[in-house]
Design a protein around this nucleic acid. Structure first.
Lengths: 350, 350
DNA sequence: GGAGAATTGAGGGACGTCAATCATTTTTTG
DNA sequence: CAAAAAATGATTGACGTCCCTCAATTCTCC
């Protein structure tokens, strides 16, 4: 009735505990036919090793390291905050979380940090990656040396990293595009895309996505040339203000990056019917914008959930478990003013 | 450096292991000043009991029971499927899941089932509740007898149950309303709400939600009287077909319950510009409708996530942990054709 | 100061696994 | 067939906790 133990397996296989243990842990020195019998017994009894007892016995702990960008951008601040929030509950599951902050938007600095990582430093590494040659190379090295590496939020080295946890930015852009189309049902319009910089892969992907959807047949929307604001509110204020004066017939704005505080302020001051606005990341600022009706939709990648999923995936990797059983799908989530989560915690697990 | 053990605590407190153990597990027979010193040491060292070792030692297993409605409605089928999917991974964490199917839409049958549950049957109970007096009474009894009860998907006995895991249906209705408003930017329209039955609390809530939003100032949408189709596709086909013939100027349909296969078929056959359609629950049928562009948005309560969250909450309750640390917020999620999750698993944890 | 009660210490046997050691049995090989 | 090699069995002490017993110490109160 109860879960079978390894002793049950040994008895069922007609071998000693020691032999069953040798098979289970692949210690070698076991005759082929004994291996068969033990595996047969494991099958028959539905034996599963008690991971907790095993970890207890071998004093195993899990050391997981995260390389995340520095800086005060709301998204990464939230990401780091979620990591801190997971620290205590995970700790009681023998998981230690190490967070290392890396200069943002600097592939070389990231590669340097990756190069300094030793296999002995941790059991699994998660890195907010930028797809640069040296980064790919460093990830490949770590993987080759036996350390599982996952990419978080941004992907790189798709052949080497064990998994990517994050949204598909083309999908996110398409989702924004769909919302914009919805809001233009039965009318034409001009849409202004605002990016941080077109050199950023994620921004290009989102732009591609929105372009795909707006270009679908049946639409009559004019996607303007993107304005780049370096993720800065001051640039946003200037550039978007200028664009709106130059083209007062703008009916929609898709802000792909950061600096949205200024965008929301502009909307607050705009006389008459404001354009339809979609932007990314649920932050205190964007939440406030939604609640005050100054913007229409926020596309969020749920950083807390990303961290939770990343930790689950890392645990699975460290245990040598099959990744298929770990959910790692993160879908861009749409927030309108009516389905905002309660400000507290959401998406974490224990 | 390593996590302190109870032996470390005992030493730090200047007492024996036995005394520290007596304090930790409140076995009594300890002098007040010793209690103080041990608690002090626990604080100082940041000691946390190793739950896995403790469970191992006391052979603790968790028995969680779920009362879910029978029937082949896609949502509950998905809910039951998610429960099955969680069975194996949870089992290896000493959690046994028992699922008991209850006649759907039958508060009396549910109350009967609840009445038959003994405290010894399980460590925590999750029930898809209907807010009926006998149900409330049964939940109150179980709680009083010391079994934590949570409500799932549907709430009842808010004073007695330990937590509710599920979406806020008013919020879901509001979200639908917001989407409908978005899709009617700059134009007027008539919206047809379709419910299963107005006796169902969740349907009423959703209807209230959509009414709230459509009634907000600045709108010019006419919310028609709801049509009831008993969650059945055949009724849906008849009723909605009739409504569309009677009022060809319908510009939006909000389907609050089930039977959407027929709704999608109707949309496929409609000549010209079809109405804007929002419905609930991501199922193979609704997913297909989205992908084929026959409907516009699906509001989903993410059953897999609900189950995962419910299990986490139940574990926390069974361990006597603080519920605050368990995320239990489920927000209605919006799916458009562009942010559909990969059909496989999503939202589960291990 | 002494009896009785309260408190404390010491220890042991679980729980299921790991990672050893050492002795014994079986198989292989020349 | 004997010696060497391979395989197996038996056993042990962790890991951190629970739960129990028994004895020793300290305290309380008359």
């Amino acid at each position: 009735m109860n879960k079978p133990t390894l002793l049950d397996v040994a008895r069922a296989a007609g071998v000693s505990y020691a032999t069953a243990d040798r098979v289970l842990n692949a210690r070698g020195g076991v005759a082929e036919k004994s291996i068969q019998r033990v595996q047969r017994a494991i099958e028959d009894l539905g034996y599963e090793r008690d991971l907790h007892a095993a970890n207890l016995s071998r004093r195993r702990t899990y050391a997981f390291r995260f390389l995340v960008p520095q800086g005060d951008h709301a998204f990464f601040r939230e990401l780091r905050h979620s990591l801190e929030a997971e620290r205590a509950p995970r700790r009681s599951n023998r998981i230690s979380i190490f967070v290392q902050e890396i200069p943002a938007l600097d592939p070389e600095a990231l590669a340097d940090a990756l190069d300094r990582i030793q296999v002995s430093d941790c059991d699994c590494l998660a890195v907010v990656a930028t797809d640069a040659p040296r980064v790919t190379q460093a990830i490949t090295r770590l993987t080759a040396q036996g350390m599982p590496v996952i990419t978080l939020v941004g992907d790189a080295a798709p052949d080497a990293r064990a998994a990517y946890v994050g949204i598909d930015n083309v999908m996110a852009g398409r989702t924004a595009g769909r919302l914009i189309r919805l809001a233009h049902t039965g009318r034409t319009g001009r849409i202004l895309p605002v990016v941080g910089a077109l050199t950023a892969r994620d921004h290009r992907d989102r732009l591609d996505g929105v372009r795909e959807v707006l270009g679908e047949p049946g639409g009559s929307l004019d996607l303007m040339a993107p304005v780049a604001v370096q993720d800065r509110a001051d640039r946003m204020r200037v550039e978007v203000g200028q664009a709106l004066r130059a083209a007062p017939d703008i009916t929609g704005i898709y802000s792909i990056g950061a600096g949205n505080r200024a965008l929301i302020e502009i909307m607050a001051q705009l006389p008459g019917q404001r354009p339809f606005v979609v932007l990314h990341e649920l932050t205190p600022v964007s939440r406030d914008g939604l609640e005050r009706g100054l913007i229409d939709a926020v596309i969020d990648q749920m950083p807390a959930r990303e961290i939770a999923v990343a930790l689950d995936v890392m645990k699975a990797l460290a245990d040598g478990r099959d990744l298929a059983t770990a959910a790692r799908d993160i879908t861009p989530t749409i927030y309108l003013r009516d389905n905002l989560p309660v400000p507290g915690r959401q998406g974490d697990t224990t």
